[in-house]
Every structure is written in C-alpha cells, then in structure tokens.
Write a protein that binds this DNA or RNA. Structure first.
Lengths: 150, 150
DNA sequence: CGATATTCGTTAGTGGCCCTAACGTTAGAC
DNA sequence: GTCTAACGTTAGGGCCACTAACGAATATCG
C-alpha cells in the first residue's frame, strides 16, 4: 500500500520544509542566471547598495546587504578585480575603506537589474500579481529573529 | 537623505530575496531546535521516511527525502551510531543495504515530531491558520525544476 | 588627558548543504 | 552473455552562514 514512491507524507506536511524547498528552487534559478552573467547574488547586492547610497565602507555594506563582515572582503575583492568597484582607504577614518561604484559597475548593475527582473517573472510565473504580493506579505510575517551579527 | 541605514531598497523589492530570507529565518530556528535535540533535519527526514514505509534501501531514502545519494551515507552512519537505525546488507539484492528503524529510533521520531510541530507554531506564529494554508499553496507554485539527481 | 571600549578590515577556519564525478559491485534487460 | 543500469561509497568543489581572533584606529568617558 505504501512503498516509498514519492516524498514522505510527514515531510510534505511541514510548512517550514515547503518554505525551504521553494526557496531552494528559487535560489537555484537566481544563481544559475547570475552565474551566466559571471556574478553571484552578493555581487548584485553590493552593487545595488552602492548605487543607492553612494560610496560606503565595507561595514556599511555589510549592514545594508546582510553579508557577514568576514565575507565582504572576498566580495569586494572580486568586484574590484572586475573593476566594477574601487576600494580606497578613507582619509577621514583610517580604519575604513571607501568602496565606490565605477562606471563599469553601474553598467553591470543595470544589466543585472534587468536580468533579475526577468528571473522574478520566471520563478513566479504561476502566480498572479495579487498572489505574488500576498506571498511577500506572508513571507514578511515569517518568524525567527532577523538579527544578524550578534 | 539616504545614507545607508537599513537594507537596500532594491534588494527589498526582490521577491526571490524575500523568499530566501524568510526561508533562512525559518531554517535557522528549525536547525537550532533540532540541534538542541542532537539532530539535524536530514535525521528527521530519514526517520520519518522509514517510519512511513518500513525498511528501505539508501537509494529509496534518497528519493523519499531529497537527500543526495552521496550524502545519505553519512546520515545513515550518524543515525546508526546513535542506534536509531540499523543498516544491514539486503540478502535479496546484494547491492543494497536495508535500513531499519529501531525502537529507539521510533521513540526519537516521536520526540522530533512533537518538537517540529511546536517549531511550526513558533515560526508561523504571526500567521493565522488560513494564512498558513495560503502560504503553502503559494509556495507550491514557486517555479524552478523540482528535479533532483540528473 | 588617559584608560577603556568599540569599530573596522582582515584572516582563518568550521560545518551544512547542494552537486558532480568516478569506482567497483551487483542485478536486469536484450 | 553482453550491456546497461542501479547501488553504496569516496572524494572533492562551491556557496553560504557563522565564530573567533588580530592589529589598528577611533570614540567614549571618567
């Protein structure tokens, strides 16, 4: 009657699992598309944050994007290697680096913006606009601390 | 007007990101609670699958839970170390191992079931029953291939 | 002023999970 | 009886969350 055919019933009934799996499917598509453009999601996050608020220190970028302070170094390195960003010491506060968007970085951001917009439509293709909005509303209520970094 | 205070606007507007972040918050709670019980989510997944369908091969467990064939080895090892599961060669098919739930494993599963039920209530505390159901419905429609394993 | 706490960038490292590639062994299909 | 496919297993890469510690610079406050 119940040989292992599909997925376990009990697992299917965990809302947390449904959430995890949906996120995984979504992330997979996002990562694939970004990889196709030679980027990762953190690259986009940093570029977007810089575009919105101008030059910023790495710590500020960390707070704006949710990337850990310890991981931001590599991201900025990669962006700097691609000349999408420039890192220079802050004369006003010698602890800090000022990270600045380059022209190439701004162009890249436009591309990624477009790309991500189309990814949204792809991932949520089976949802109406209203459903999509409702999903966002519901997701915002999903618990757990938003806290990052002690 | 717009120094980096909170989170970037553009990031906030990506539904895929809202989904990722909600899943991360949810997963964090789930993992914490399970870790408190000395388990991980794959442990629960395997125990649940075994309970529902009786003894199974590792490949079957892989299909039922979504765990990769290459990762299941370790999970079964850990469960066997804790005596929650027994692994023995299948006499009928000498390629396979038969994984069987022990009495201790069944007891553990009951505990984890209870624990996870309470985690659901914790994570989705701010959602009504109806909203929770709707969330599940919406999540099911989130795109990307469900495909695992080539 | 001077001691203390805090912030910043950075390095190093852990562990989880997803995923690929390859292997020898064994069973099924033609 | 050969070829194909499934099985368990090992090894490894990649991304990400997360911790701990460091020297250096700044902010705070007595």
């Amino acid at each position: 009657m119940c040989k292992l055919a599909g997925v376990s019933e009990r697992l299917e009934n965990l809302t947390t699992r449904a959430l995890s799996m949906a996120a995984m499917r979504s992330d997979r598509v996002v990562n694939e598309r970004l990889a196709g453009a030679g980027s990762r999601k953190w690259h986009y996050a940093v570029l977007a944050a810089l575009d919105e608020s101008g030059p910023a220190s790495q710590a500020e970028l960390s707070r704006a994007t949710g990337i850990y302070r310890s991981d931001i170094v590599a991201v900025v390195n990669e962006l700097a290697d691609r000349a999408l960003v420039e890192r220079s010491p802050d004369p006003a506060d010698r602890r800090r680096n000022v990270v600045t968007l380059t022209a190439a970085g701004r162009r890249k951001l436009v591309k990624l913006d477009l790309l991500l917009r189309s990814v949204q439509d792809e991932v949520f293709a089976e949802l109406t606009r209203a459903e999509r909005d409702q999903l966002v509303t519901l997701l915002a209520k999903v618990g757990g601390p938003d806290s990052r970094e002690h």
